[in-house]
Design a protein around this nucleic acid. Structure first.
Lengths: 149, 149
DNA sequence: TTCGCTGCAAATTCTTTGCAAAAGC
DNA sequence: GCTTTTGCAAAGAATTTGCAGCGAA
């Protein structure tokens, strides 16, 4: 089920944290941008529009906190900065396709990795809690461009 | 087939590069540490033992070069530094298991992702050239420790 | 009134770059 | 010789940390 503000609020309170205006604003940015992969700086820029006095350190601290309480998932696409997306129950099994030509990142829903996880567990005893799968290559549009260009 | 020094030399020459003592030393470090995931600083430290005057910048530049000519593969385990491993034809289909308890990284050989790649290509047209799969969890030893402790 | 939170600036950490000297080919 | 490479030090970029003031329960 999709993650909602109420859940987030609960998780914060459980750990003795507060839902401050800054945090609320940052959470809102993510909820209004589902499916996007925002960097700290992206968030900072968007936040500035409504909260001009907010500091970048707060953004970093908030992202870290939201990751701790499983609201956000930290991603790395190798561009030198961390990115984050909302961690829904729904999107546990999507993978990222990174186009090496245009840089665009798309997603692919799939459960095939479950089989792989089972195989790993059976063979090694490793207990998996999370996986990351990224695929690099060329997206359909860039292939077209290459053909027509 | 396993990557050998001769291949590396050839690839360097093809692109107008030189096999300097520093490069040779760094390549040797990787060939003598197959299966390990070395950071720039790891390499630098090992290099220092035989080449005390070598600078860290050279290490970074060499790693970059070796990645370009497909000798090394750049890895990221989320510990804030890039790591590298030898890119063999042999090890195209291994995945990394990252223990969140002890930090140990083990490998798992498997071809299941080929099916996933095929599914992605069929559905989206995305042409995959490379993938990264990492699994986070608790290794068998740490599970034992937890039980016995 | 006690903690947690914020903003600012400084500090850290990893990595990259500029440049003159040195070294392959 | 011509070009690449090196070492040093400085620059960059992303992120973290210290601290004093602020704010909510």
């Amino acid at each position: 089920m999709a993650l909602m503000l109420k859940d987030i609020y609960t998780r914060l309170l459980e750990r003795g944290h507060k839902l401050t205006p800054q945090r609320w604003a940052i959470i809102a940015i993510f909820l209004m941008n589902r499916g996007r992969h925002l960097s700290a700086d992206d968030v900072f820029a968007m936040l500035r529009e409504t909260h001009p006095n907010n500091g970048i350190a707060t953004v970093y601290r908030t992202l870290e906190l939201l990751e701790e309480i499983d609201v956000l998932k930290k991603l790395d696409f190798g561009d030198g900065r961390a990115r984050y997306e909302v961690r829904d129950d729904d999107n546990h099994h999507h993978h990222h396709l990174v186009c090496q030509q245009c840089g665009k990142i798309t997603e692919f829903e799939d459960d095939l990795l479950i089989a792989l996880e089972a195989a790993i567990h059976k063979k090694t005893g490793f207990q998996i809690t999370e996986h990351v799968a990224k695929f690099y290559g060329v997206c359909a549009e860039c292939q077209q461009k290459a053909e027509n260009g």
